[in-house]
Design a protein around this nucleic acid. Structure first.
Lengths: 136, 136
DNA sequence: ATAATTGCAAATGCTTTGCTTGTGA
DNA sequence: TCACAAGCAAAGCATTTGCAATTAT
């Protein structure tokens, strides 16, 4: 119901249109990591005239504004999710594609340390785990 | 001079052709992480008739045979390197594109632990650090 | 001999863009 | 009003593929 992304747009001065508002709503309500096609299908159920080009332009705009995050997991097309306050990484189920988010401060710290040891300031990183469910 | 990839092909029963032998040589001698276009240019200096399609098909074949590894770093096309005995991850200089390899056993262990805690067997992972050189 | 490989060009899949019309502040 | 956004179709880019000719074993 809430549309947190729309609020962030207002806060950041991102101009709103009907299309952007709807895409914002759909993304705000998503609990998964939809790709552009998924988003296009979802918004089209409400407004069938929104073009996929607009979805592409909008997710890019949101991403550049820091409102959503883009992920290029192995072998898939780009997926998006609302940017969260808490940084997190992803574990991808190689059988189902299911995505689980996780946080591990120890790994974060080690990454920073590794970069510094190599003479670099850590700006960004990408950590993805690929696994299969353990049946017990 | 040596062509370790060619040896691996023989060992694994990968059929060799002149084109594959040359691509193997160029990749064996590379100390960087070339993309398909780089490889095509390099082999073309020796045999200008090798098509880019063959380079694509060959790196794919080598990858499926476990002889080379493919990396999709952010914002770039796929890059390749000979698979090493020692697993390693990469730090990418966001200004120059320069790639530094590193190994960190602690991070490896933590990844396994994280996956297991979430009920998964860790099959594969991807860890990339993006940073900028610290000038001192 | 013959199944696999090559080169070429055409096709693909995802994403971006030019252009004209429509619209938010 | 008027700079910016949307829709459409065409273009772009990396990669794959169909097919006829060539080659490795």
């Amino acid at each position: 119901m809430s549309n947190e992304i729309e609020n962030k747009c207002i806060k950041k001065g991102v101009r709103l249109t009907d299309q952007r508002r709807l895409i914002a709503k759909v993304m705000s309500e998503a609990s998964d990591h939809p790709d552009v096609d998924d988003l296009h299908k979802r918004v089209n159920q409400i407004d069938s005239k929104i073009s996929i080009a607009t979805v592409y332009r909008t997710v890019k705009l949101f991403e550049e504004s820091g409102i959503v995050s883009k992920h290029d997991f192995k072998g898939n097309k780009a997926r998006y999710e609302q940017t969260t306050h808490e940084h997190h990484d992803h574990l991808i189920d190689i059988n189902t594609g299911e995505i689980t988010e996780f946080i591990n401060e120890d790994i974060e710290k080690l990454q920073k340390k590794v970069a510094e040891k190599l003479g670099y300031k850590l700006i960004d990183h990408r950590l993805e785990l690929y696994g299969s469910k353990i049946k017990k």
